[in-house]
């Protein structure tokens, strides 16, 4: 099968790469481009660890041919914030102990970001709905929900730099 040259826009940066039709976005991001913050937990779109933002919307990158992501804006966890410049959500996840093993955190954070981008004052139920496609086996979600609430508050008070 012929490889095709495509351009992917990830975290505001353009990459010209060769992909095969069967290459999944998650593998291209991780193996070709080195965005290993995007995790892979099931391969069937059930765990949400591979969640990325595609034109601002959370999708499972394990169910998406890389070719389909052409001309779209991709945000991975690496594009949310860095250790030097944390996004308020990342800050809140740290402070509220919303991460234990941390494997679900990248996908969880991106789902939460999409929520807060659309809804700056989410209710607890809205938060739970927004992250219900991201499985966490460690936390019981309690501290994750708390962290999203705290981040929403920080961001609307203008302390944050989203």
């Amino acid at each position: 099968m012929i490889e095709r040259q495509i351009e992917l826009r990830v975290n505001g940066q353009s990459f010209t790469i060769l992909v095969k039709p069967q290459d999944l976005l998650v593998d291209v991001l991780r193996d070709q481009l080195g965005f290993t913050g995007t995790k892979k937990g099931c391969g069937t779109g059930e765990c949400g660890a591979c969640t990325i933002l595609l034109d601002g919307k959370p999708v499972n990158s394990c169910l998406m041919p890389a070719l389909r992501a052409r001309n779209k804006d991709i945000i991975t966890i690496e594009g949310l914030g860095t250790p030097e410049h944390l996004h308020p959500l990342q800050q809140a996840f740290i402070e509220n102990a919303a991460v234990q093993c941390g494997f679900c955190a990248p996908g969880m954070l991106l789902s939460a970001k999409a929520l807060l981008d659309a809804n700056s004052h989410p209710t607890e139920t809205e938060i739970r709905q927004a992250i219900s496609g991201n499985l966490c086996r460690c936390t019981g979600y309690a501290k994750i929900v708390q962290a999203v609430k705290a981040a929403a508050q920080a961001m609307t008070q203008g302390d944050g730099n989203p």
Binding site: C42, T44, E46, C47, I127, R128, Q129, I131, S132, G133, N134, L135, C136, R137, G140, Y141, A142, I144, V145
Partner: peptide
């Protein structure tokens, strides 16, 4: 053998603890 039919609780299934 997949999360489709091996059901783990989601955020919506967890009550206040």
């Amino acid at each position: 053998p997949q999360f489709t039919d091996y059901i783990l609780p989601t955020a919506l299934d967890m009550p206040l603890i």
